[in-house]
Design a protein around this nucleic acid. Sequence first.
RNA 1: UGAGUAAGACAAAUGAUCGCGGCUGCCUGAAGGCAGACGAGGAAAGUCCGAGCUCCGCAGGGCAGGGUGCUGGGUAAUACCCAGUGGAGGCGACUCCAAGGAAAGUGCAACAGAAAGAUAACGCUUUUUGGAGGUUAGAAGUUAGAGGUUGGAAGUUGGAUCCAGGUUUGGCUUCGCAGCUGUUCUUGAGUCUAGCAUCUAACAUCAAACUUCCAACUUCCAGGAAGUAAGUGUGGAAAGGUGAGGUAAGAGCUCACCAGCAUCCAGGCGACUGGAUUGGCUAUGUAAACCCCAUCCGGAGCAAGACCUGAUAGAGGACAUAAAAAGCGGCAGCCCGCUGCGUCCCGGGAAAGGUUGCUUGAGCUUACUGGUAACAGCAAGCCUAGACAGAUGAUCAUUCACGACAGAACUCGGCUUACGGCUUAUCUCACUUU
RNA 2: CUGGGUGUGGCGCAGUUUGGUAGCGUGCUUGAAUGGGGUUCAAGAGGUCGCAGGUUCAAUUCCUGUCACCCAGA
Length: 117
Amino acid sequence: MEKKYRLRRNKDFQYTYKKGRSLGHPLLVLIYRKTRNADIRIGYSVTKKFGNAVQRNQIKRQLREILRLQLPELKQGCDIIFIVRREAKGASYKSLEEAVNQLLKRAKLVKQGETHT
RNA sequence: UGAGUAAGACAAAUGAUCGCGGCUGCCUGAAGGCAGACGAGGAAAGUCCGAGCUCCGCAGGGCAGGGUGCUGGGUAAUACCCAGUGGAGGCGACUCCAAGGAAAGUGCAACAGAAAGAUAACGCUUUUUGGAGGUUAGAAGUUAGAGGUUGGAAGUUGGAUCCAGGUUUGGCUUCGCAGCUGUUCUUGAGUCUAGCAUCUAACAUCAAACUUCCAACUUCCAGGAAGUAAGUGUGGAAAGGUGAGGUAAGAGCUCACCAGCAUCCAGGCGACUGGAUUGGCUAUGUAAACCCCAUCCGGAGCAAGACCUGAUAGAGGACAUAAAAAGCGGCAGCCCGCUGCGUCCCGGGAAAGGUUGCUUGAGCUUACUGGUAACAGCAAGCCUAGACAGAUGAUCAUUCACGACAGAACUCGGCUUACGGCUUAUCUCACUUU
RNA sequence: CUGGGUGUGGCGCAGUUUGGUAGCGUGCUUGAAUGGGGUUCAAGAGGUCGCAGGUUCAAUUCCUGUCACCCAGA
């Protein structure tokens, strides 16, 4: 995923945590906030209690791959943070994909035209 | 063949599609696009040591504090590595060891035990005082006794004898009575003798008890003096060990063997090792208790540090204006007072942003030389991640042993810890075959 | 990156300095007291002292390694 689609600065993370809306799922938590920018920025957060560095990196990579494929279908102009819960330990790629799709639909971040077709 | 042992290598592989990171090259005004090769580990981990590097501090020395601790070597350095010494384990190959000093000093060693580092509070031995005994021998006395001898007394039984009486019977004298004599039985008294039992006296003997005296030996209790480290048992540990002699009891007091210390000699750079018909006979354990000795250590850390941009607050200076407008206070107006617009400079430096530090280095591979080795020297070749919310993923196919521990974050050298397996190869032991 | 602390009955904590007996409060069980409950009183049970190794005669304590948690600074 290219750099301009990533949420990077600590300030942006803090601002999104404070002002954004949150949605829950057994595996993930979604926090999103609409912005005036045209771009969409996505960040990921995994607690240290999730596991060692290998496990934390792996689940971030899998989420990044899922979101890379979903990116063209998302609405523009918002910041998104995915927080990984401890229950996601050992979850398969497909179950993560389902969780991401469900959360994005509930947040109504998916483009309308795509959903109708 | 099996079991072990030591040293290493690898850490699923291949292909396709879509993606990620920086680098290089090309295109483009730029954003960006295209192509190429490259892109996590043996531990990247823990952060336990040691360095480089950077900043701060620094005249010299000492104290405090901390680290290290057999010897020699290697290294930039080390708590690391190599070689050796000593100790422990293993049949062995081999492995492991924080391994200086306990006669510099202090502390501690619970309970048990006489006693825990030197003492005599237990005990043992000798001696002595006092008390209570015991045994043996002697002397004196007393008491009751035993048996013996001698004597006496009275009793009883038997025998003998004498006397007296009675009786039977014979003989003699006698007619008869009567007498004399002998005999049988018997009674009484006496004498003698024997036995038995009793009493008594004397003598000597025996054994006993008691009292007194004396002597010897000995037991117990209490105390004093001296000697002693042998002692059951306790304990993790008991004062060099075992045996023999020796002694009042004992003791390296003496001897033999063994062990330890010191000294001397020999070997080794050294730790240390070997030897001695040498010497005195010994000094417990704990220093991962304080400590002593030797040696080392300035502090902080890449969020170090350097460069660029420069928010807010506070505050200063210079220039310009001192006209108008505006705000506040004096109720309002007038008037008065205060503030005030602009530009530049200095200063400040936000968990701000960017660039850098950032990967060519005590580097890797191979060969040679020196060295037992760690390692060093030299030659040739090679360039091998550099991110900053942090790059390796997803899908599919094939194969297998079905994939463990685990993700660089300034860089190295070590150590420690985690780890499914696979493989190379040294040596040892056991078994079998030839 | 650096420094520091904690881990002990179910829970919250002492004891570690100076090694030898693991204790307190609360909770639990049983009994007494009450018509019953609470309070109170008495008795009792409950401990791999985070884990592993070492030093020592002996370790909760000393040392090393390791695990988990917490705090502070840049």
